[in-house]
Design a protein around this nucleic acid. Structure first.
Lengths: 114, 114
DNA sequence: TAGCGACCCTTGCATTGCAAGGTACTGTGT
DNA sequence: ACACAGTACCTTGCAATGCAAGGGTCGCTA
């Protein structure tokens, strides 16, 4: 992959789990639903990324799921946040905010020195 | 490493190259100077991360360096942005802005559905 | 029963942050 | 002159993880 695109991709990667936790917090949802929601933003995710990621979240008890039948195919795993997941997401939102401030202060620093 | 800390670390990782480009744009600087500047923000970087990263930036012609002697040790590589690097940084700043909007719209989405 | 789409998941590769270790230059103390 | 400490640059090996590619199962429809 082109190096420049790759750098942009990395920024997105870094916040993937964060974004997915936010989406799950929005209400019970299954994998393809998450992918569709992410596509509406700048974030893109494919199955090969999402399934292992959801497994990690599950293994660490940030999310849990229930099987639900579908009208058009096999049953789906609907995910929702656990209490622990919700608490952690609060922490993440806070550090996201402070990270944003850090970056902006770097940008401003440089503007001053011009 | 603890999984929860790891997720936070990933967010920082993603924007590392971005942050470093911003710092270099601020004026000629060498490796330890970059590390010190990053420490002032939430971002932490060690040598084993920074040197390969600077090499990648150099290899892709986003930065260039000149050797300068030091009063207290061996000579240092002072980095600065190339024209290409400055142009790319503008692009990065823009996508950083749009990414921020995306995340915030996700957060708002979820607040609505409460 | 054959085909298809929707789901779920796994394997192998490439990238990359980081811990740990290595080399080289400069000044200082003896 | 020699050893040592401090500073600087760099490399090696490991672990995490996004992604492409491929595979299996379920339920509907022809």
């Amino acid at each position: 992959m082109d190096y420049l695109e790759n750098i942009q991709a990395q920024v997105r990667k870094g916040i993937l789990e964060f974004a997915i936790l936010i989406i799950i917090k929005g209400g019970e949802i299954y994998a393809n639903g998450i992918i569709k929601k992410l596509k509406k933003t700048d974030l893109i995710v494919v199955e090969g990324t999402l399934y292992p990621l959801l497994s990690r979240l599950k293994r660490n008890e940030l999310v849990e799921y229930v099987w639900k039948e579908s009208k058009s195919g096999p049953p789906r795993k609907y995910y929702k946040l656990t209490k622990k997941g919700a608490e952690f997401l609060d922490v993440l939102e806070e550090s996201w905010g402070s990270l944003y401030k850090s970056i902006n202060s770097l940008i401003k620093d440089h503007e001053k020195s011009n």
